[in-house]
Design a protein around this nucleic acid. Sequence first.
RNA 1: CGGGGUGUAGCUCAGUAUGGUUAGAGUACCUGGUUUGGGACCAGGGGGCCGAAGGUUCGAGUCCUUUCACCCCGACCA
Length: 432
Amino acid sequence: MRRSKAFIPTTKEAPSDASLPSHQFLVRGGFINQQGAGLYNYMPLGKIVLEKIRSIVKEELDSSGCIEVQLSFVTPMALWERSGRADAMGKEMLRIQDRHQNPFVLSPTNEEAMVELVKNRVNSYKDLPLNLYQINTKFRDEARPRYGLLRGREFLMKDGYSFHASKEDMVREFDLMEQTYKNIFTRLGLDFRVVLADSGAIGGSGSKEFHVLADSGEDTIIVCDRCDYGANIETIDSINEDDFNEFTYEELQTKNIEEKCSCGGTLSFKKGIEVGHIFQLGTRYSKELEANFNDENGKPKPFEMATFGIGVSRLIASVIEQNHDEHGCIWTKSTAPYMVNVMVSNIKDEEQSSLGEELYSKLLDAKVETIIDDRKERFGFKMKDAELIGFPYTVIIGKELVNGLVQIYDRKTKEKLSVSKDEVFEKIMELI
RNA sequence: CGGGGUGUAGCUCAGUAUGGUUAGAGUACCUGGUUUGGGACCAGGGGGCCGAAGGUUCGAGUCCUUUCACCCCGACCA
């Protein structure tokens, strides 16, 4: 992409209503813009990042045997009445009417729709297990949308639903998804923890959340520095959060969580952004909606189910909450909108310009996602812009070229590495 | 949904207590020139139904009523 032809409206100032770093930088960097409360447009850079995350999610799910579908976003109210959630979901569910005054809702989640899809199409234990997912828009009419992409009303979420002939098999899939989710967040380059979540009314140990560690996280989680143990403090009731921060590990032992962390490691509190949630549903929906399969004896049984969610658009903001500095975004390699920014300091300089063009095409030929900053702007302006957007590497072709040198600027370390113009391509290929 | 706040140029905001020429600044944008290693400088220029609707008044950005939108603190949530 040529920066001179791109649509990347960056700004020096943040809108006054953006408080979090991810919100400010994503808006200032020209990734997104706000359309209304909790409603966002994705501009080209935002769209690229969104698609990158989406495809990583898809690749990992597919390789674990999940199958992608797409459900209608607008669903008849009757679907929700059958499961009893028309009332239970309350005002969070946005209700609309069509031209015949028939009631519909903008789907906030899709348990009912997915069960209806499978019901009477999957009739035998021989067809199980089955794990279907979609990556689609959701709408939840939040009482108070905030924090930019972290809590929008309209958002992109991956929701998956698995169907099993037995509880054991459902648990097997649950564990497989836990591993798959770990693979996804690792590939995204995120520092995250898996924690026990509040299982709510359904009970059991069947709910785990995936949290990206970030100071701005809305949840407080307890993690062990030695073993895998982690828990959302929501799981430990009768203690309020403020008190909790005062406790030492020994004190925590008296709070009934010690048996879950027998390794002797130190427990500490972290702020986390919930980006994934996996849940053992059992037969709650299949019973309600009379979705059965025939077992080995030809007897109808309700599906054992589990459900798996990932907040895809929220992940964009999470990457930045975890990776930014005072200058702007610092994308991980797998999420960066462009890996390399070829910055020609002075485009009027023939030599700089032609080396930039040459490097640009070479990188494109090598399938490196590259953008060339060929705008008629000053050095400082382009550097600030590159830092705000957060390309992992910017090749600075500028005044050192007279000595045959260019610089590779590493956004994360802020180091500038001087390399010969003849070796810059190889060096870049080595770094990425 | 409770409590608080803000709506004036694309963006950040003055101006509103006490009504009174043609509504301002910075930034962004356009033109020309200078400049080219950290959002540079000079000169000129375009851009506003002062959130919306009513009202008071000779006169409303400013006062009154209604309404809408957005933000912040809570309660609720991927």
